[in-house]
Design a binder for these strands. Sequence first.
DNA 1: TCCCGACCTACCCGAATGGCTAGTCCCCCT
DNA 2: AGGGGGACTAGCCATTCGGGTAGGTCGGGA
Lengths: 215, 215
Amino acid sequence: MGTVLDSDASPVRLALVAEDPLARGALSRALSEQAGDIAVIASGTLAEVESSRAGDAPDVVLWDVGLHPSEVGGRMEAPELGAPVLALVPDESAGEGALSTGARGLLFRDVAPAPLWAALRAVARGLSVFDPALSALRATPRAGASASAPEGLTPREREVLALLAEGLSNKAIAERLDISEHTAKFHVNAVLAKLGVQRRTEAVVRAARMGLVTL
Amino acid sequence: MGTVLDSDASPVRLALVAEDPLARGALSRALSEQAGDIAVIASGTLAEVESSRAGDAPDVVLWDVGLHPSEVGGRMEAPELGAPVLALVPDESAGEGALSTGARGLLFRDVAPAPLWAALRAVARGLSVFDPALSALRATPRAGASASAPEGLTPREREVLALLAEGLSNKAIAERLDISEHTAKFHVNAVLAKLGVQRRTEAVVRAARMGLVTL
DNA sequence: TCCCGACCTACCCGAATGGCTAGTCCCCCT
DNA sequence: AGGGGGACTAGCCATTCGGGTAGGTCGGGA
């Protein structure tokens, strides 16, 4: 942070951390298709990136925790590279772990490119960024209250439920998830069925009562 | 989403809401110095912007709650312009209030330009953005936050709102209140209008957040 | 007295919703 | 290799919603 000019134009220097080469490649490729104000200065597994640390530290670390973060080992080990970490998680449970390791932001792994770029820049500027569906985790100790039935609900359905709780219409949900309105309806129906209700409003109320979503 | 290019290049359409003309001017000026991918399509006080709503809705609302949001009146009234709201608050206490009105992001008023741009883009993409010092909020069970405005809502409307929060259809509400379905719709519409929402689900969420109903 | 607000009823119409059936990928598990 | 499940797309159809407009009654305050 210094001159006036660096305010926005200065490229964001990014360190990309992912154990899975495939995921790393996909992210790296997607990143490179960017206008150019995001520069990948390091990429590799956690060990690789931490060792290859060449003089200049990144502005932000994009950390893909992978599909099965729990299998990796006892606890999740977050990158420690002197920069805020934006974690990509497969689901809510992984989000808790990532947060506890100090992640500054939390997005789902399948986030669309545009939001990802925006999030990276925001985190690089020192902000915290969350997917709305994950923002409930913030500082929430999650007192084992998971009790309810997240089971039965697939990840996609939980995602839809979260948007449902935002009061979005099917069309809006479709746009947000970048799927067809038909599919959005499909998922909404699945949620309604699994929650045993007829109306989306009911679904939101029940979900809120069960702690599936945070209003 | 279609081409690669639209992913990030598409300009963000912003509505700027601030009661204080000075603050508005400062923000507006700062905004205009931007590269150009943020277009201010509306600017003014809450009332002004909400009324001048010209056809196309913004992608994001930048809302400056001012220096003394508590003095304004009993409760904070958030912009409801069909877009996620990024609130600029003077301190943590104001943050709680802003959150309870549904703000999607929370930054301090004196945030630097760069983080602000980044945050605006992220919120426009559907993400939640917080200043790290504020991200711990939300966990607080909206202590004094309730206080809200049962005023504005007539007794009958509050009654309808309660049934709305049960997920009842217009017909069901009509039967429960022993009035015609037409009348039920009438009251529901009144509630929607007074809460500033389009969908009954939204109404329930907002009402819950404001403490008007208990889920 | 007259006006106003709360409350109630009614009709029209386009959009949204939910319910149903059906089909395609893809991946995992047996 | 085959089965099953999740994610996605699709069309059809009846109902519900939401918005707008246009009334009606009643009680209280100006």
